Amino acid sequence: MSKYYPAQININNKKCVVVGGGNVAWRKVCSLKNAGAKVVVVSPVFCPEMEREEGIELVKQKYDEYYLNGAVIVIASTDDEKVNEKVYHDAVRKGMLVNVVDKPDYCSFIVPSSIVRGDLCITISTGGSSPAFARNIRLHLEKQFGNEYSEFTELLSEMRRKVLGEISDEKIRRGILQRIAEWDMFDFFKEKGASETRNKMLNIISGKHICK
Rank of each mutant, 00 (worst) to 15 (best):
K3N: 15
G22K: 08
V19P: 00
G20C: 03
V100F: 02
I167D: 07
K192D: 11
S2F: 15
R198S: 08
F186Q: 09
C16E: 04
A25P: 01
K38D: 14
M50E: 06
P104D: 00
L58Y: 02
E142S: 05
S206V: 10
H89L: 12
A37W: 03
N199F: 10
I110V: 09
S125T: 11
E49L: 10
A25M: 02
H209G: 13
V17H: 05
P112F: 01
Y4I: 05
L139G: 01
P44W: 05
P131E: 07
N69R: 15
S168R: 13
V17T: 08
C47W: 08
C16R: 03
I124M: 06
T78C: 01
V116S: 15
G146R: 10
P48L: 04
E65Q: 12
I73K: 06
Q61M: 11
T78D: 04
E182L: 14
T153D: 09
N12S: 15
R93A: 15
V39K: 02
G22A: 06
W26V: 07
E151C: 04
E148V: 02
N34T: 11
K171L: 13
F152M: 00
P48I: 06
M96Q: 11
K15T: 07
K62Y: 04
S125I: 01
L141N: 01
E53Q: 10
T126N: 03
K33H: 09
L68A: 03
F152E: 05
V19M: 06
E53S: 04
E51H: 07
E65C: 08
D169I: 08
N23P: 08
Y67T: 06
R174D: 15
I124L: 08
N99S: 04
H89M: 13
A25T: 02
E158T: 00
G95M: 07
S206A: 15
I122P: 07
L164I: 11
A132L: 11
D79M: 11
N12K: 14
Q61C: 09
V59T: 00
G193T: 03
D90Q: 08
E81D: 14
G207A: 08
Y5W: 12
P112I: 00
M185C: 14
F109P: 05
N34H: 13
N147C: 11
R174P: 06
E81M: 14
D79C: 09
G127Y: 01
I122N: 03
L68V: 00
D119Y: 03
C47D: 09
I11A: 04
M1V: 12
G70N: 00
I122W: 01
H140R: 14
V72E: 02
R93N: 14
K38R: 14
V87E: 05
S2H: 13
D79E: 13
G207Y: 02
R27P: 00
I210T: 13
E151K: 07
F189W: 04
K200M: 13
E148P: 05
L155S: 01
E85W: 08
E151S: 02
F46M: 05
E49F: 04
D119A: 12
Q8A: 14
R174I: 12
